[in-house]
Amino acid sequence: MIRVHLQYFALLRDQRGCSEESIETTATTPAALYEELRARHGFTLPADRVRAAVNESFVANDAPLREGDRLVFIPPVAGG
């Protein structure tokens, strides 16, 4: 088990109902953690439409997660 901090934006924040939380997880990658959260909170975006950022940098969905990581799952962007 590791403890990670999550921040939510846009559609994911609306669907989660809060903008941040700390959780304990057995997931070892962002992809596994997203599936866990998706099942728990009913996120409608499939994993392949979400990018992961760890400690304020984009990472691969199969990058290793570590204790204390700060994660953001990035829904499809729409600036401009």
């Binding site: 846009a10 609306d14 975006l45 829904p75 962007v77 729409a78």
Partner: peptide, 24 residues
Amino acid sequence: KARVPIWKKEHYQSGSTAWLNCAT
């Protein structure tokens, strides 16, 4: 528009709203 993590929620005259590009 393609890469920067900025999101846009449209508020419609009808009263509904939607996050752009997040429809599934």
